[in-house]
Design a protein around this nucleic acid. Structure first.
Lengths: 210, 210
DNA sequence: CTCAAATCTTAACATAGATCAATTGTTTCA
DNA sequence: TGAAACAATTGATCTATGTTAAGATTTGAG
C-alpha cells in the first residue's frame, strides 16, 4: 500500500499525531512512496527543537545536517567581512534548511542557520541521506526537482537584485509573501532585500507618502 | 561492461571520434553507466550547431531544451525592462545550458541563451530527458548533484553581489577564471559582474593605477 | 512591572556605480 | 579596402543606497 492510499484511508487519523507526518505528507504529495519507504524515511530523520536565536549550523563549521521544518521559522544568513549579515532565505514549515555547499562537499559552511523563534525540525545527516537515496531511489528524483526549483527561484532573485531597485524588490516580495512583515522583524526583511535597515525605513516612508 | 571500463579498454580509441564522446565521458566520469545506458543517452541527444550570435532559447518562449556544450561558448542573459542585459552565466565545453525554470515548469523563459561564437551542442528535450531518467535512474542522481552544485555556486555569487564591491568581484572572477578576458568581450564581463561597461572600464583603470 | 536590550525612525553627509555624451579604437563584411 | 557597426575609454553629473549618529519605540527577561 502506498503512502498516498494510506493517507486517504480513514485509519490515517490513527497516525495523525505522529511527528513525522508533515514530512511523510510532504514527500508522498510529490512522489509515490510505499509504507516500507516511509519507515526508512522516518529512520533517517531525528526530531530536534531549537529555542529562539539558537543555531542549527554555523559559518566556518561543516554543515553535516539537512533539516525539514515542522513548526516555527528560521533564517539562513551570511556574515560578511564587515560584520554585516545578509539573509539568503527564510524557512517556514515544509521547507528544507542547510548549507547545501557545505553539506555535499564537506567544506566549512559559509552560512549560518538560526531559529527566529522556537522551532521544531526533523534532522538528517549526509550519511543517512545517501543511505536513504540508495534505499529509496525515487527520493533522488524528489531532491533533484527541489534543487532545480530552488535554483530557478534563486536565479530570479539574483536577476531581480542586479536589475531592480530595492523598492521594486520590496513590492515583489509583498506580493509573494503578503504576511512576511508579521512573520519576521523588519531589519531581517531589509537584509533579505539586500539593503540596510535605515534604507528600508526610508524606502517604506517614501512608498507610503505616494 | 560499464562505460568506465570500456573507456579504459584500448578499443576505446576506435570510438574516439564519435561526437557523443565528450558527453559520455562527462557522464561516465561522474556515475557508473553501462554500454546500454550509453546507447540510451545517445538516443536522447541530437547534435546542433549555432553560428555566432545565434539564439538557443529566447526570453518569452518556453525553453524546451537542455543542451551540453561540445565546442564554443555561450552566454545566458536576462533582458530587463530598461533594455539592459544581465549575464547570468557563460557556458563552455562540458557545461549545460538551459532556462531551468522554463524547462521544468513549461513557463515562458526569463532567459536568453546565445552563442558567443560558432558553437556545437548536444540538445535534448524535456520529454526525452524524463524518458532517460526513467530508463537510467542513476542519471537522476547525476542531475541532482549538478543542480545542487549549481545552487551552491549561485548562492556564493548572490552573496558576493550583495556584500562586495564590483572590484572585489572582478578580482575573484580573475582568480577563478584567469583567461576569461580572452574568452569573452569586456562588456560581457561587466554584465556578468553586475555593472555597466563604463563602470568596468573605470574600475580597471583604477586597479591598474595601483 | 520595570528596565535594559533590541528595534525602528529620522537626518545629514558620503560614495559606488549609473547616466549621458563625446571620442577613439576595432571588427566586419559588402 | 573602406564604411558602418561595434567596443572601449573618459569626463561631468546624478542617484540609490551606505554611513554615522541620535532619539523614539517596542519587547522580553527577571
Amino acid at each position: 500500500m502506498t503512502c498516498a492510499r494510506w493517507i486517504a484511508n480513514p485509519s490515517y487519523f490513527y497516525y495523525m499525531n505522529d511527528i513525522y507526518d508533515p514530512l511523510l505528507n510532504y514527500i508522498s504529495n510529490r512522489i509515490k512512496v510505499t509504507e516500507q519507504d516511509c519507515l526508512l524515511i522516518k529512520d533517517a530523520f531525528t526530531p530536534k527543537s531549537l529555542d529562539k536565536k539558537e543555531l542549527l549550523f554555523e559559518q566556518g563549521e561543516v554543515c553535516t545536517t539537512t533539516s525539514f521544518i515542522l513548526k516555527g521559522s528560521m533564517r539562513v544568513f551570511y556574515l560578511d567581512k564587515k560584520g554585516l549579515e545578509h539573509v539568503l532565505y527564510f524557512g517556514f514549515p515544509d521547507w528544507w534548511v542547510s548549507d547545501i555547499g557545505s553539506f555535499y562537499q564537506h567544506t566549512p559552511s559559509v552560512l549560518t542557520g538560526q531559529a527566529l523563534e522556537k522551532t521544531e525540525l526533523l534532522v538528517s545527516t549526509y550519511e543517512k541521506m545517501e543511505e536513504l537515496f540508495a534505499e529509496v531511489p525515487r527520493l533522488e528524483r524528489l531532491f533533484r526537482i527541489i534543487s532545480q526549483k530552488n535554483l530557478a527561484a534563486l536565479q530570479q532573485r539574483f536577476l531581480s537584485t542586479v536589475s531592480e531597485t530595492a523598492d521594486q524588490r520590496y513590492l515583489k516580495l509583498l506580493k509573494r509573501a503578503p504576511n512576511i512583515e508579521q512573520l519576521v522583524p523588519q531589519h531581517q526583511i531589509a537584509s533579505y532585500l539586500g539593503i540596510l535597515p535605515e534604507s528600508f525605513s526610508r524606502l517604506k516612508r517614501q512608498l507610503h507618502s505616494k
